[in-house]
Design a protein around this nucleic acid. Structure first.
Lengths: 122, 122
DNA sequence: TTTCCATTTCAATGATTCTTGAAATATGAT
DNA sequence: ATCATATTTCAAGAATCATTGAAATGGAAA
């Protein structure tokens, strides 16, 4: 990933509504969620949800496919991974402290569960 | 890291001038760089650099210490790591595609060097 | 104290981004 | 065709963020 794309991805994630949308899509993998379901989940009007959805799509963070009149969105994990890769490598020059936060027994966010590699799902 | 702080960190990084500043600080580790040096590196006026520097400091991404009349800034790798941790764990629920981007032999940004774990420095 | 240097703060302006609600588009059903 | 549903697009206004240049602050030297 190059800088302009990384900046777009960072800006896309730097919004509470879009982060909620992203989170809902992560939870809804691999089926995805329709624009309407996302609007409901994010407590946004259809128009507002659509605005944020196209922002996320422009950033490559989500993809969409139309099924009849519904449009289903899915999170693009590879794009998020590309951003993480960019932060670690291009931005932080493979700094060990940053890399350590990806390890299964990490503790970088102040969450005690994280240090034990506990899946937040369970 | 909790959401509000992650949002602040993402917003801080989502700006070309601040990303340049961060990059310069990463390269200048562990001594850090003064506000004046950073302004020069980022090709910004002192006032503009100061604005972005306090934004980065508010986000916890840099720290500063005063030495005589100069103020030296340093990158806070732990905070960047915390953000990466947040993206991977809280946001992406430990998705493997995202985690794989932190591995030494990763290839998530389209850069062939990345797959071989080549340090961009060398 | 006066002066100089590094940096920050402030107010004004300009630029982006977000929200809202109405209208448009696309698709399917009657 | 007509209608209903799902979604997007658009224009206007509100809110937030960035840039500028001038003034203020903090600190060291003359």
């Amino acid at each position: 990933m190059e800088e302009p794309r990384a900046l777009t991805a960072l800006a896309a994630m730097a919004n509470p509504t879009r982060l909620r949308i992203l989170r809902a899509l992560v939870a809804a993998e691999p089926q995805g969620l329709t624009a309407g379901q996302l609007a409901e989940t994010a407590e946004a009007t259809p128009s507002r949800a659509s605005f944020h959805l196209s922002n996320l799509a422009d950033a490559g963070l989500v993809s969409s496919t139309r099924n009849a009149r519904e449009i289903t969105y899915r999170v693009e994990f590879a794009a998020i991974g590309g951003l993480v890769d960019y932060i670690i490598r291009d931005c932080c020059r493979n700094n060990q402290t940053v890399i350590a936060c990806c390890a299964p027994s990490r503790n970088c966010g102040g969450n005690p569960d994280a240090a034990r590699g506990v899946d937040p799902e369970t």
